[in-house]
């Protein structure tokens, strides 16, 4: 047993990497849910983004192209969900599950030629000067671009929801679609856009797994990250900054668990692995005491009756 082997600086740095994929996907889902739509297909969109991004990066030689393609692919797949739930007014829970099933199948079909290939490498930024600051440098300033993109996205989503008119409209649609419709907002159009944004984010999150974190393509490689993203949105009680916090907490539990094991400490892995979910439930209970925690129209079908 050797706790001194755990280097807190490196632990914090790897926590930031471990949290990025789930954070980006959760931010997308946050916007979707804020618009009043529950898309349980995050896992399906992530895995599709993972393979499309991987394939595009391999063929173009550019990771950036890969990420863009992953965003387009994720958004494209989410359009299926949008069609079902917003146009055909199908149940969102069932449609989301169907999307995951479809996405898992689609990704492994596309991915058949990509096993055992190494994708192009994304350089670490090692921001000059800043990365040399003791302690903070290694924790904060020696990551790849996408880690910073994730944090930037938190800021952007927060600004969007809080300070822009569009953000206000989106929230209004999520809180009460009847009223928003009465005020003349295009409920369906706004929701379709939100769903596509969610799909794009899930795609990027998936591509981060296949292009940076692992990097390789394997069937089903997102291994449930999409479901954790769903938990994370709830944990964050639909607030962007808490998504950041929650992602670091969830990522932290994983990284800490591995560190403790490596340090020779016998820990009940199963019980530690279930803790994020239990914490999420507890947060839900605590949040429920306050009003307006979850978007009021979440998961409800909207049909504009004339």
């Amino acid at each position: 047993m050797d706790l001194s082997a755990i280097n807190p600086i490196l632990l914090l740095a790897s926590l930031m990497v471990a949290a990025t994929a789930v954070m980006i996907a959760a931010l997308g889902e946050l916007i979707v849910e804020r618009a009043g739509v529950l898309n349980l297909g995050v896992e399906g969109m992530m895995i599709t983004g993972a393979i499309i991004g991987f394939a595009a990066a391999v063929h173009s030689g550019s990771p950036a192209v890969g990420f863009v393609a992953a965003a387009v692919g994720g958004a494209g797949l989410s359009l299926l969900f949008a069609l079902l739930t917003q146009v055909a007014l199908a149940n969102q829970v069932a449609s989301g599950l169907a999307l995951t099933l479809f996405g898992l199948g689609l990704s492994s079909l596309i991915g058949q030629g990509y096993v055992g290939i190494k994708p192009p490498v994304i350089p670490k930024l090692n921001i000059p000067l800043l990365s040399d600051i003791p302690v903070l440098g290694p924790i904060l300033f020696r990551h790849d671009m996408v880690v910073y993109f994730g944090i930037l996205l938190v800021v952007l989503v927060w600004l969007f929801l809080k300070y822009t008119r569009a953000g206000l409209v989106l929230r209004a649609v999520g809180e009460n679609h009847e009223a928003a419709h009465a005020l003349g907002y295009k409920v369906v159009r706004i929701r379709v856009l939100a769903i596509m944004f969610g799909g794009a984010c899930a795609g990027v999150g998936g591509a981060y797994v296949s292009l940076v974190r692992v990097p390789q393509w394997t069937e089903g490689m997102t291994a449930g990250v999409g479901w954790i993203a769903l938990a994370l949105v709830v944990f964050a009680s639909w607030k962007p900054w808490r998504v950041l916090l929650g992602a670091y907490l969830f990522g932290g539990v994983t990284v800490l668990q591995l560190n403790l094991q490596a340090a020779g400490i016998a820990i009940p892995v199963e019980y530690l692995s279930m803790s994020p979910y239990l914490i999420t439930i507890i947060v839900l209970v605590i949040m429920s005491n306050r009003r307006s925690a979850s978007p009021a129209s979440l998961g409800k079908t909207f049909h504009a009756a004339q």
Binding site: A5, I6, N7, L10, L11, S14, V17, A18, A21, V209, R213, V214, Q216, T218, M221, T222, A223, V225, T254, V255, L258, N259, Q261, A262, A263, G264, V269, E270
Partner: peptide, 27 residues
Amino acid sequence: FKVIWLYTWMDPAKEADAARTLIEQGA
């Protein structure tokens, strides 16, 4: 020896995290 049990035969993301953890601890 430092051993990490992942309780899975294949989960690339977890494997990557485990490898990084071991490397950070000096392996």
